[in-house]
Design a binder for these strands. Sequence first.
DNA 1: TACTCTGTGTGAACAGTGTTCACCCGACCT
DNA 2: AGGTCGGGTGAACACTGTTCACACAGAGTA
Lengths: 229, 229
Amino acid sequence: MATTPLTLDALVATSRTLLVEGGPDAIVVREVARRLGVTAPALYRYVRGRDDLLTLLITACTDEVTAACLDALKACPPDDVEGRIRAATLAFRAWALQHRPEFGLVYGTPLMHYAAPEGGPTVDAGQRFGGLFGSLFVEALAAGRLRTVDDGVLSPGVRASLAATASRLGLPMRPGEVRPFIVGWHRMLGIVSVEVAGHLRWVFGEDASAFAEEQLEELLADLLVPVAS
Amino acid sequence: MATTPLTLDALVATSRTLLVEGGPDAIVVREVARRLGVTAPALYRYVRGRDDLLTLLITACTDEVTAACLDALKACPPDDVEGRIRAATLAFRAWALQHRPEFGLVYGTPLMHYAAPEGGPTVDAGQRFGGLFGSLFVEALAAGRLRTVDDGVLSPGVRASLAATASRLGLPMRPGEVRPFIVGWHRMLGIVSVEVAGHLRWVFGEDASAFAEEQLEELLADLLVPVAS
DNA sequence: TACTCTGTGTGAACAGTGTTCACCCGACCT
DNA sequence: AGGTCGGGTGAACACTGTTCACACAGAGTA
């Protein structure tokens, strides 16, 4: 009866379709099974339960947005660090806008009922993404384009956290150099999150693109020093 | 049997308790009824259904955060516009951190199953909050502290949206003056959203306060020109 | 061939969910 | 006393995630 071979990928793909069609609540075990031409208990041979399905889906989406950013980078000259950060940032935003439900699942308000398994695949995928973005800032640092700060001006707690993050991601940077990376990540995520969630709709209606892109550009200007030339 | 008088307020309060205890999914009609010493169908005399409950709850929380900001303003000298914007911003963030589930409901990823009634009480409450924040920027403008831009540099779409927003909120400002207000709202919401959602946990662990407050301070510096004196 | 073992899918069941329905009871008004 | 009506009830329907005993097909082996 199973029209589809019933693989993990098929489970994830079907779950994702449901997510897109009706939000996280629409990811219903019985419906996933139904669409795969099978009854619900069959899925429990492949997956521990609904939460497991969500974990797989979040991981897949995180990897997909990472791949999208990598893809955008391939079209960029390796020495144009500003262009590369811009490309990755815009690719992130584009993916988010094109896949709002998935973005909400990964970077939105955490589902309180669902807890990501500690040290599980979702955090791994998150680190992969962090590593990609971090490497762009390493490039910027090497090119002398990064607007860094002295370690001394950082509060001890922040300095320690930044140092730990750099070492965990394998980034050869001191805290004052990591900071723009974290600021960039933080503000970018904020800008995109608010836009995707629609919290600017009362101002800009359905299309806040112009404003959001301006904000991202302003962020870039804050992070990087202008070309010396 | 009804230990509590069974008012709309009681319904909202109970729903909120459930939200805090277990997230949006934990707002269960039957459980609300149970805690009020009544059976589920009884609630349908007061509320059209679960979505109605959510609408009331979102409205109540929006009004509460508005009140919290207003309260913080009362302790501020009326002529210190920077201090007032800072106070309101910090009050917003403090409320968000102290009421993470409620904040998620109001300003987080929209629940796809739930659609706020158009022109309903939730958007009214949202406008009340927007009006409060907007008035602070009117003060800043009057004091000559606002970092405005020329209308001419704005793209036509953005300019029109800003003008419409100003007139809808009754703010006597031209688009280039409204812009810092929207930028402030946008970035503040981004900063607080990302912090509350815990998406900085991988960097700063459980307490990202120092970093988040720095970011808010930086935002203020971007919005306001230093005192002339 | 016959027998077992394993992987995979099924139907029934349990305890939940939101919502609707017929019903009922007590208070109030005439 | 009789009627009306707001407010509460129990039963029911169609869902949900999950577990359980069971069945069936194919592989490996005596």
